[in-house]
Nucleic acid binder design. Structure first.
Lengths: 107, 107
DNA sequence: TAACATCGTTCAGCTGATGAACGCTGCCTC
DNA sequence: GAGGCAGCGTTCATCAGCTGAACGATGTTA
């Protein structure tokens, strides 16, 4: 359930904005609240994320999900992995579009 | 169930090789036999694919799934759509990796 | 004829995603 | 205070859709 894809996306989003609710995160990633909750727990258990209860000026209560050093490290490697994968897909598509243009010519 | 992604992939595969069993197609696309069957039926019903019973030299029976003109047309538009999407993903990843390198520098 | 291979088709079973509902906490307004 | 409200994480009954074993049909082989 916690795939590399969402491991990456969640780490990326939290790095950008540690102060984000699970609901908001779900909306941004286009997945359900339940899934976000599950994935966050898994990331926490693996030590990639740390949660802190946080209240500014003794006002509103809030949660902070920030990446641990290990989390940052994993995110770097995931990003490189993703970049490589996307470049491969892109190259494949270049060839595909070339082939397609031939087909279009034929028709 | 029949998403653009598999509409595209199936049309692509059949254009390359119309003489392919549903089992083989499932293996190539990494999906189940049942899903291939469902998707093929949908593509046939929409007039993108035509099936022909085919026997060479009165020997082995076989099926041919070939694209109709409409199928070819749809496949062209799907490929362009996909290329555009992948290029966007690629651009986004370029920016992402740039940002990542900054982060790495910081650590 | 019988055994076998391979085809498309079916559907009971399973996996995993969903989001309404819940308890909790802090902030108002009276 | 008390009561209402807003927003948080958490839970889990429900559901969508994917899976592949099993089946009938057909052609091939021994």
């Amino acid at each position: 359930m916690l795939t590399d894809e969402y491991r990456y996306k969640i780490l990326k989003e939290l790095q950008l904005d540690p102060n984000v609710s699970q609901r908001e995160l779900a909306k941004r990633l286009g997945i359900s609240l339940g899934k976000v909750n599950f994935c966050l727990k898994a990331l926490i258990e693996k030590g990639l994320i740390k949660v802190e209860n946080f209240r500014s000026n003794t006002k509103k209560v809030g949660y902070l999900y920030f990446l641990t050093p290990k989390g940052i490290e994993v995110k770097v490697s995931l990003t490189q992995k993703f970049l490589k994968r996307k470049i491969e897909e892109y190259d494949a598509l270049e060839k595909e579009i070339e082939r397609l243009r031939l087909d279009v010519k034929k028709n």
